[in-house]
C-alpha cells in the first residue's frame, strides 16, 4: 500500500522533525497533488540535507521536494532608531 498524502502524514513528518535529532520546529510541510513540499529555513546546509535524507528514507514512495533555505548571516547595513 502506498503512503497517502494526508493530514496524518503531515503530522508524522512534523513530529519526526521536532522529536528526534533534527529538532526543527520551523519547517513547513505542504501537500501538493502528487508531492510534498518542505519549506522554511535552517542554520546550515548540512541540517537541510539531513532533514531531506531522513524524510526520504522514512517515506521512500512519496515524492518530496526540499525548498528549505539556509538563513543568511551577513552583517547588517542599517540601524533602526527606536522612539
Amino acid at each position: 500500500m502506498s503512503t497517502q498524502l494526508d493530514e496524518y502524514l503531515e503530522a508524522e513528518i512534523q513530529s519526526m522533525l521536532t522529536d528526534g535529532r533534527i529538532a526543527e520546529l520551523g519547517i513547513t510541510v505542504q501537500r501538493r497533488e502528487h508531492l510534498l513540499v518542505l519549506g522554511g529555513e535552517v542554520e546550515s546546509g548540512r541540517r537541510r540535507d539531513e532533514i531531506c535524507r531522513q524524510i526520504n528514507e522514512r517515506f521512500p514512495d512519496v515524492h518530496i521536494v526540499c525548498d528549505i533555505g539556509i538563513t543568511r548571516a551577513s552583517a547588517p547595513s542599517e540601524v533602526e532608531e527606536i522612539s
Binding site: G40, E43, T71, S74, P76
Partner: peptide, 16 residues
C-alpha cells in the same frame, strides 16, 4: 529571531 531578520543581527539605536 534569525529566520525573521535574515542577517547575523539587527542594530537598534536608543537615546538618540
Amino acid at each position: 529571531a534569525h529566520p525573521v531578520i535574515k542577517q547575523a543581527y539587527n542594530v537598534y539605536q536608543l537615546l538618540t
